[in-house]
């Protein structure tokens, strides 16, 4: 395998999943919040855990972006 294509694979692997990871983190955070609201607390706390979960999800998304950058710097 030539140097060029190896570099290309590394870049694809490191940056190709940014979008999906970011979106997945937000979805999981918000899904967890909705689950807590509707199933665990029976709609008594309705908007709050959804918002908290959404906030944590967005934070996790940015954190995973940060991790990807750190990973790339290390190589």
């Amino acid at each position: 395998m030539s140097k060029m294509s190896k570099e290309m694979i590394h870049l694809l692997g490191n940056y190709g999943h940014i979008g999906f990871t970011f979106v997945a983190a937000i979805f999981i955070g918000m899904g967890g919040g909705i689950y807590l609201d509707q199933k665990v607390f029976d709609d008594r706390t309705t908007p709050w855990f959804t918002f908290i979960g959404l906030a944590f999800g967005i934070a996790a998304g940015f954190k995973s972006l940060f991790d990807i950058l750190k990973q790339q710097e290390k190589d």
């Binding site: 999906f20 990871t21 979106v23 997945a24 983190a25 999981i28 944590f56 996790a60 954190k63 995973s64």
Partner: peptide, 18 residues
């Protein structure tokens, strides 16, 4: 802790759905 857990579970979702 919640942020790390969420980003760890996000791996499960993003790897499969991509």
């Amino acid at each position: 802790l919640p942020i790390e857990l969420i980003s760890n579970f996000a791996r499960l979702l993003s790897l499969s759905i991509r």
